[in-house]
Design a protein around this nucleic acid. Structure first.
Lengths: 183, 183
DNA sequence: GCTTTTCGTTTAATATCTTAGACGATCTAA
DNA sequence: TTAGATCGTCTAAGATATTAAACGAAAAGC
């Protein structure tokens, strides 16, 4: 665990002015269980933790979202972004050279026949969308997949895994936008 | 449990395109454990659930806060783009109908010959850019002016006054992006 | 056709969690 | 001082979760 579950539960319980026994009674568990959890001597089952939180009451989502303060900027161009290098098969022509301080990245993309952004699907914290200009492009986002033709468009949260492939036999052109820039 | 833990985990896992075994390997648990959890035949210990989510990766907070609402539309056929402010001379076809919560607006624009966004130049707090697909477009930004042709592109801070005009005798097409949405 | 791989599931054995109950410490009231 | 109440902790026994291995089904290669 990357956080102190026991301390978190204890803090929440004491904030409510509840004793271990009182909370245990409300939750339908024994006081010993709560004691052990608060000492981090066991890793409670979800059913137990849920019962305990119901006795406070507090949702699991709220419990885990506690005290997290300003969300750390994870996912920040962290992985796979350059793996797109389907090599010569895919070319990106970026509008503008310096992305520093920008909130928006615009690309004119060209996918050669058979070009593929890769099997390990891309993930980055942003939103992106685009319009297909020429050719056909198969786009997979999460468990949804569709082949888009000229004039068709897409838009999705970039955190869901996605993949682009040109399944046709002619080059495919796309103008895409992404915010914030991920390259 | 007031929600289907097993189904939630399965949905998250499959959205990543991971098999039970692949995820188990990443998480440091056995595939059987994941199978049993997804069938709700056990209530996993928090340590186990944490390990599993680390293999995705996803935080506990995000997992329990997962949006169970309807999934947003991702793909848009060429006839499904939303017509905006459709003057006869200029048509804006927006990717996606609902901008609420979005950080990015993408438009497929068409300027008829002679079309003009107006003498009183536009100003809004955002950044925007685009790529010209067909025809020619005169763009004025502040005291700079230029005529762009197919493949040419632009990018500027929307707070500086700007104006678009199609001076040619054929229609002009542009794909543009703007953040945050200004309509 | 056949083999090989991968998929999710199941089961017996093991590891871990939860309970019931007891323990000492602390506080209050008689 | 004493008895009673309440606190958090601890431990053995029972309940549950996890593992390791095997299973049949389905897809992929040959």
């Amino acid at each position: 665990m990357d956080f102190d579950l026991g301390a978190r539960l204890r803090a929440v319980r004491e904030l409510q002015g509840l004793s271990q026994r009182e909370l245990a009674k409300r939750a339908g568990v024994t006081n010993g269980t709560i004691s052990l959890i608060e000492q981090n001597r066991v890793s409670p089952s979800l059913s137990s933790l849920k019962k305990v939180l119901d006795g406070i009451p507090m949702s699991l989502a709220d419990f885990f979202a506690l005290n997290t303060g300003p969300r750390p900027k994870i996912f920040f161009g962290r992985d796979e972004l350059l793996e797109i290098g389907g090599g010569a098969a895919i070319s990106y022509r970026q509008v503008g050279h310096d992305l520093a301080g920008r909130g928006l990245q615009i690309l004119h993309e060209r996918y050669a026949p058979g070009a593929d952004t890769g099997k390990a699907m891309l993930r980055h914290a942003a939103e992106e969308g685009g319009v297909v200009l020429k050719g056909e492009l198969e786009i997979t986002v999460g468990d949804q997949r569709r082949v888009l033709g000229p004039g068709d468009a897409y838009y999705f949260d970039s955190r869901t895994p996605h993949r682009f492939r040109n399944l046709g036999d002619e080059p495919c052109e796309v103008v895409s936008a992404c915010t914030p820039p991920s390259f």
